[in-house]
Design a protein around this nucleic acid. Sequence first.
DNA 1: ATTATTTTTTAGTATAACCTAAATCTCTAT
DNA 2: ATAGAGATTTAGGTTATACTAAAAAATAAT
Lengths: 220, 220
Amino acid sequence: MSTLTYAEENYLKAIYHLSEGGKKGVSTNDISGEMKTKPASVSDMLRKLGDKAVIEYRKYYGVHITEEGKKLALQTIRKHRLWEVFLVEKLKFSWDEVHEVADELEHIKSRILIQRLDEYLGFPKFDPHGDPIPDEYGDVRSRPRLPLNELDLHSTGQIVAVKDSSAAFLRYLDKVGAYIGARIKITDMVEFDGSIEILVDNKKSIFMSKDVAGNILVMQ
Amino acid sequence: MSTLTYAEENYLKAIYHLSEGGKKGVSTNDISGEMKTKPASVSDMLRKLGDKAVIEYRKYYGVHITEEGKKLALQTIRKHRLWEVFLVEKLKFSWDEVHEVADELEHIKSRILIQRLDEYLGFPKFDPHGDPIPDEYGDVRSRPRLPLNELDLHSTGQIVAVKDSSAAFLRYLDKVGAYIGARIKITDMVEFDGSIEILVDNKKSIFMSKDVAGNILVMQ
DNA sequence: ATTATTTTTTAGTATAACCTAAATCTCTAT
DNA sequence: ATAGAGATTTAGGTTATACTAAAAAATAAT
């Protein structure tokens, strides 16, 4: 099993994320958009990742991640999310500040470091955004979840994750008081535009657009 | 103030360490030895570091670190030592395991991360090897120290640091029961070869060669 | 003081990761 | 079925970091 460089790890992680959900191959342009590099640079990298057998690459037809690749990507994701937990729980970062730092920390390569960190954090199963943390072997136990805008009027649930985890969106959620783990109830729905009103922890009422609700994932 | 790459940071740190003590310039060969790169690569790097004004470089005559360079080197050293404290105190690493991991962690560049880490660790002043941790501005408060082999018979002191911090040496110290912070007393000295016997914490007797003693620093 | 040795630098090469510009392939619309 | 649009790859260039081999400078030895 060849080891990957920082850049290769980042590309592979991007490809993994982009291939989640769809069965279709991931396009060069999509990767280019995600990585903020030019398509030409992506082509270069795809050839290299193909040589290392972490993706299947057919020129002009996009890529599929291999089992080996998936395992490696999940290891990087595991590290990223564990560091996020550390930053938020121990160092008191707010959840919108952790991304860039975790993007660097995730590349530190020491198996024992990650094992000890995991233990130190109490073997968390989800990161501060509610995303599941894969185990050492890449197994993920995800919880059934659904976008807030698909809930019925008066139904209840618990916020477990967000789809959009841009700093701007996370700050907005902090401001209005919606956080991972919050118990919510749909108290009103506007037919016209799909916007809703929810009650958080039986205390605070929040009004939000359908767009915002669609980016909040709940478990019922 | 230009920012440095990983490699530049590493070279600068090496140059800083090599210039401690001596007033003389640091030679290309010394740096090559420390960095485990070839002298030709060092020459390349020195030109670059000179351009960035973190060292003064006169061809063929070695280098001197500038004030700016010293400040940057101390920032890297600060990060390295804070991470070492974290690894030992929080993640239960033994002090001979921390070097390589800290060498990677020290390059994570986030001011706020280091500030929070410092706070989280309780603003430690010394790392697990007893070396002082510079503050944010590069100020170091070191304690007066002297090699164990220079103490007189029957004198007492406290182990505060080690000169040789190779894993092999640290493991040896662990085995015999000499650790940073230990209170010691010289109970015997062999004139012939300079080897000594010390009593650790009024409990355990250890016999050691002059060579070993010379690598242990104590505060009286 | 001149040669020999050691140290250091220069010249040229390699790899990784990026870029721009140009060429080539795929796909869609007529 | 084919032209044109759009996506993708190739070609060639750049920067950072390392290397080897050869040249040049400094130092040591006679």
